[in-house]
Measured scan of single mutants.
Amino acid sequence: KLPPGWEKRMFRSNGTVYYFNHITNASQFERPSG
């Protein structure tokens, strides 16, 4: 389970998975720990 605010997303163009935090508007490719 991801830390609060984080969700898994995917770029439609190339299928790359990334993680987005809707609380802080942060995004990263590494899976957030917590």
Rank of each mutant, 00 (worst) to 15 (best):
K1V: 14
K1R: 11
L2M: 06
L2T: 02
L2I: 05
L2E: 15
L2Q: 01
P3V: 02
P3Y: 02
P3F: 01
P4V: 08
P4L: 07
P4F: 09
P4E: 09
G5Q: 02
G5K: 00
G5R: 01
G5E: 06
G5A: 03
W6F: 01
W6Q: 01
E7A: 08
E7Q: 09
E7Y: 03
E7S: 09
E7T: 09
E7H: 08
K8A: 11
K8D: 04
K8Q: 12
K8R: 12
K8G: 04
R9G: 03
R9N: 06
R9P: 02
R9S: 04
M10A: 09
M10V: 13
M10H: 11
F11G: 13
F11M: 14
F11V: 15
F11L: 15
F11T: 14
R12G: 15
R12S: 14
R12A: 15
R12Q: 14
R12D: 15
S13L: 08
S13K: 11
N14Q: 08
N14I: 06
N14L: 08
N14D: 13
N14H: 08
N14W: 04
G15L: 07
G15R: 04
G15S: 09
G15Q: 07
G15P: 00
G15M: 06
G15H: 09
G15I: 02
G15W: 04
T16W: 13
T16K: 14
T16E: 14
V17Y: 12
V17W: 06
V17E: 13
V17H: 10
Y18R: 03
Y18T: 00
Y18D: 10
Y18N: 03
Y18S: 01
Y18K: 03
Y19P: 06
Y19A: 00
Y19K: 00
Y19D: 04
Y19G: 00
Y19T: 00
Y19H: 05
F20I: 07
F20Q: 04
F20Y: 14
F20P: 09
F20A: 04
F20K: 01
F20M: 01
N21W: 04
N21A: 01
N21L: 11
N21E: 06
N21Y: 03
H22W: 14
H22F: 14
H22P: 09
H22A: 11
H22V: 15
I23A: 08
I23L: 10
T24Q: 05
T24R: 03
T24L: 04
T24H: 06
T24V: 02
T24N: 06
T24S: 06
N25F: 07
N25M: 11
N25I: 05
N25T: 05
A26M: 14
A26D: 11
A26F: 05
A26G: 06
S27N: 04
S27V: 15
S27Q: 09
Q28Y: 03
Q28E: 03
Q28A: 06
Q28G: 03
Q28T: 08
F29N: 07
F29M: 10
F29K: 10
E30M: 02
E30S: 01
E30L: 07
E30R: 01
R31G: 03
R31Q: 07
R31Y: 11
P32H: 01
P32M: 01
P32T: 02
P32L: 01
P32F: 01
S33T: 13
S33I: 12
S33F: 12
S33G: 13
G34Y: 14
G34M: 13
G34L: 12
G34E: 13
G34P: 12
G34T: 12
G34F: 14
